[in-house]
């Protein structure tokens, strides 16, 4: 029988918690420390975000990467959102006995498929098709990356959507049914209004996954540093930039720019967490 004094035990459990929090803060600290020379040179962190990338003239702004990240992530949401909403309606609302369950199983399994496999299949299956269809460039472009990314983030959304649909009290739906509402009406007038916060939270989390993913954009988006003009242009994301530049000379300013990318990603993640938590907790409070 171990007899650890109560106070000591609490400290024993507290210590690893403090370590984990220190790591979370430390990650940002490291970015800040190592990116500092560039930030000082660029004058202002915000300046750096808005500057373009022209190493020849001493400009190491990460604006093109921010545009790349945002455009790829938002386009993937455009593809994935209706698809996910449709799938969740099929699972929770239409509730087809066999296919509904099967779909839920497939979606859950999808969360376990390695990202690099989506990238790999994308390179050899999707990119050549895009190239053939649009007859432009190599096929490595925003569109290819967004399509594959949409597949990656769909499970996040579907699982979140179905969960919030399922959490709408049954009695609400029954009340609507008693008034003669059809399944579709029940969904539109009862379920969706009750579950919209959950839907929005799912959207935010999926957006976070899309912004934070490295491999798919790195393998499929072509990685050119430019402000893309169309979805068929090549683009580089913040995450890919880190992966590509990290092999450069450690002391160079070019290298330091990846810490600015890291910091931007960290701050974006924090914003998303704040947004999702705000929505979700208010949601919980209402129930």
């Amino acid at each position: 029988m171990i007899n650890i004094p109560e106070k000591a035990a609490e400290k024993l459990f507290l210590l690893p918690t403090v370590i984990s929090i220190a790591i979370t803060i430390g990650i940002f600290g490291f970015m800040l420390l190592l990116g500092l020379p560039l930030i000082i040179r660029g004058g202002h962190f915000l300046n750096l975000l808005a500057q373009s990338w022209a190493p020849g003239s001493g400009l190491y702004g990460i604006y093109p990467m921010i545009v790349g990240s945002l455009s790829i992530a938002s386009l993937s949401l455009v593809f994935a959102f209706p698809l996910s909403l449709g799938c969740s309606v099929l699972i929770s609302v239409v509730g087809h006995e066999v296919f509904g369950r099967f779909l839920r199983g497939v979606v859950q399994l999808m969360t376990g498929i390695p990202t690099v496999i989506y990238g790999f299949v994308g390179v050899f299956l999707l990119v050549p098709r895009i190239r053939e269809i649009f007859q432009r460039g190599s096929g490595m472009c925003i569109l290819s990356a967004s399509l594959m990314l949409a597949v990656l983030i769909s499970p996040t959304m579907i699982l979140f959507f179905t969960d919030s649909f399922d959490h709408v009290p049954k009695s609400y739906g029954q009340a609507a049914e008693a008034l003669g509402a059809s399944k579709g009406q029940k969904f539109l007038y009862v379920t969706l209004p009750c579950a919209w916060r959950g839907v929005l939270t799912g959207l935010i989390l999926a957006g976070g996954r899309a912004l934070g993913d490295t491999l798919i954009a790195l393998m499929l988006a072509g990685n050119a540093i430019q402000i893309p003009g169309s979805v068929l242009d090549s683009a580089r994301t913040l995450t890919s930039h880190i992966a590509l530049v990290f092999a450069a000379d450690y002391e160079s300013l070019e290298f330091k720019s990846i810490f600015a990318c890291g910091m931007s990603l960290y701050l974006l993640a924090t914003l998303l967490v704040l947004g999702a938590r705000g929505l979700w907790h208010r949601n919980e409070g209402e129930k």
Binding site: M31, L211, T214, I242, A269, L272
Partner: peptide, 10 residues
């Protein structure tokens, strides 16, 4: 939520 590449960079 921190992207894995940022953790790798750290």
């Amino acid at each position: 939520t921190i992207p894995s590449i940022v953790i790798g960079l750290t």
